[in-house]
Amino acid sequence: MKNIFYKLYVVAFMCLTVWFIVIIWNVTFHHVIEEYENRKELEEVATIKEQKKREAEKTKFERIILQSEERVKHYLGYRVIEEQRIEGHFHHIGFDIGPDNRSYCIRCHGDMPHDKVRDLRAFLNMHAFFIACQTCHVKTEGRGPRVYKWYDRKTGELVPSPVLTYRAGTYNAKIIQIENTGVGEPQRVDSQERIDFASEFKEREKELSEAQKSKAKKMIHEIVSKQPSICEDCHQRESPLLPLHELGYPRDRIDSILSTEVVGMVKKYTEFYMPRMLHPGEQNKENEK
């Protein structure tokens, strides 16, 4: 037994020695290497400059992507706020929402897919943050009662309602519709089969002919309704599309969502902007005029 403890002691000491070696290396010779690399980097400034000009489009892409990657820590003494830094964004974000790994729609359409209707796009994107695309864009009428569940953005698994755990809209989960196909058990609209098909299309897109691409796209969008659900489908007291109570919303949150304040604002939007949303092409024509 004594021998085992002695061996463990020696191994622990060896680990400590290795740790010291790494530290000493980092503050000494690694520093020299770093300086050499920095010098090289500066020498390459002119080349980079030229490259940046040539890759203007790529830079634009990188700017959008990378700006959400930069992280900052604000040291307030009694508290540290760590958050993403978005260039030009004045107000603090203060928390992180992971990517939606389940959605196959956003692989092509992006995380902020709504941009056609200028006056509504931010609202629609806001809802897309906690409502899966299929919930509004796929209608499964005549197939029994509609069922909606929450799924985890990271794992894609169905999870219990996060509404009581997190602040409004900051859930790491989204609402998805459960489809009754008439055959077997009801299944999620974003079924594994559909995900696999869309993923394979994305992977093999380059090798497909135009006709094949069109066919595949049609099949992927086959379930998409021409008339998506609109704000008033949910923000109304009579028969809201989403069963908010079943989705875990407490009474006061349901009252707020269906309040005169929200419903009234939705009406104002509907009055002024909604007709254009239902005929998206007209918006562009108006702008062109």
């Binding site: 634009k60 700017r63 959008i64 700006q67 959400s68 307030l76 706020i81 978005i86 260039e87 030009g88 964004h89 107000h91 603090h92 974000i93 203060g94 928390f95 929402i97 992006g110 902020m112 709504h114 941009d115 796009r121 931010a122 609202f123 994107n125 806001m126 809802h127 897309a128 943050f129 906690f130 602040r167 409004a168 809209g169 900051t170 304040e261 929200v262 604002m265």
Partner: peptide, 30 residues
């Protein structure tokens, strides 16, 4: 009522991300 939702955002005409969210908790210590 609207700006407490972190998803309130859009990509503008210049391709820049516009986040319209205000974190009330942090705003209240500003």
């Amino acid at each position: 009522l609207c700006h407490k939702y972190p998803g309130l955002s859009r990509i503008d005409e210049q391709g820049k991300m516009k986040l319209l969210y205000v974190n009330e908790d942090i705003f209240n210590i500003s």
